[in-house]
Amino acid sequence: MTRRTRPLAVATAVTLALVVGTGLSAGGAGPASAAGRKVAQEPLVVSTTEGTFGVVLALETTGGSGDGEVSFEAVDGTASGCQAIGNALISMSAGSCIVTATKAASGEYDAATSSPTPVHLLDDQESLAITSGVGRIGKPLLLTVSGGSGDGEVTFEAVDGTGYGCRISATAPYRLSATRAGTCTVTATKAGDDSYRATSSAPSDVTMLAAVPGPVRRLVVAGAAGAARRTITWSAPLSDGGQRVTYRLEVRTASKALLLGRTVRGTRYVLDRAAVKSGRLTAVVLAHNSAGFGRPVSASFRVS
């Protein structure tokens, strides 16, 4: 009689089935899935995010675990020709390169890869200069610049120079105003963008000229018609044009002939009867500064 035997392959299959079915290794030493399993590294982050175009940038990371070597890959963002050679990042133009770091597996740790990270290789802007002309009190001056590079917004700051009350409007287009004539010292700043660093102009003195003053107010000629002296008073204009004013006082006849003309620094003048003739007269007062004379204001009175 011939004796039959089970092929070795079948016996092996049965043994593997038992291992899988019972969750035991062939040696009976515990779960097979735990044997040789690696754990995840701490999150890996590209920590270098900005450099200077034209200068080789050394890339660095934070996080990760173990002793595995870190390598980098770079692709073009807004910059062109981005390339990572070892940990050195270069590009052919200013802008951003998208960099990904990988830390190799080591010991008990699996390999880890960072999220793609924009790294900005920035260039310096062209020189920025203020080109605004001369302004005038009461008429805000539009501020302009030349130079600069990129798409960053241009903003302005102003401080008092020889003038005062210097300020910039809150929104674009930006304008300069002042309450007193003189100079305002203005600085422009152009923001950075994906290719260029922010830059500022040198401080520039912008002249704000005086405006013509407004009319005087409450002009009154006091005193009786036959009095030896008459007092002429008035109030300062609401707007002096941004500069100290003096006053031009004239006394004229009904036919507008000039009897008296004076420059007055205050807001009061005493008129002697002997300086004018009898009849119906008119006192005229005009505020004056370097920009010119304000609108004349008149008041009639009689001298007997």
Score class of each variant (00 low, 15 high):
135 G>D: 03
219 L>I: 12
214 G>N: 04
47 S>H: 06
237 P>C: 02
7 P>W: 03
221 V>F: 03
176 L>W: 07
16 L>Y: 11
180 R>W: 07
10 V>R: 14
157 E>T: 15
261 G>R: 14
255 S>Y: 06
5 T>W: 10
303 V>E: 10
63 G>V: 08
154 V>G: 05
259 L>Q: 13
62 T>Y: 07
19 V>N: 13
203 P>W: 04
287 A>R: 03
72 F>L: 08
178 A>C: 10
35 A>Y: 11
276 V>C: 02
34 A>Y: 06
112 A>G: 11
132 S>D: 09
304 S>R: 13
131 T>V: 14
152 G>K: 07
73 E>Q: 13
85 I>T: 14
247 Y>C: 06
41 Q>H: 08
102 T>H: 10
127 S>E: 15
296 P>M: 10
242 G>L: 03
75 V>E: 08
68 G>H: 01
149 S>E: 08
1 M>G: 15
297 V>Y: 03
120 H>Q: 13
81 G>S: 06
109 Y>Q: 00
78 T>W: 00
252 R>W: 00
184 C>F: 10
187 T>A: 02
230 R>Q: 12
302 R>M: 01
281 L>A: 04
115 S>L: 15
140 P>N: 00
95 G>K: 07
37 R>V: 15
51 G>P: 00
6 R>Y: 14
128 L>K: 00
93 S>I: 08
197 R>C: 12
147 G>V: 10
234 W>T: 06
126 E>R: 13
168 I>P: 09
49 T>D: 08
75 V>T: 15
179 T>E: 05
135 G>V: 05
149 S>F: 11
78 T>M: 02
94 A>W: 00
226 G>E: 09
226 G>Q: 11
31 P>D: 14
216 V>L: 03
88 A>P: 00
59 L>D: 01
295 R>I: 09
271 L>H: 07
101 A>N: 04
59 L>E: 03
240 D>W: 01
76 D>L: 09
149 S>W: 11
32 A>R: 10
21 G>H: 08
214 G>I: 03
268 R>E: 12
172 A>M: 09
15 T>S: 13
86 G>N: 12
242 G>N: 05
267 T>Q: 11
156 F>N: 01
60 E>F: 05
70 V>N: 04
110 D>N: 13
143 L>P: 13
167 R>A: 10
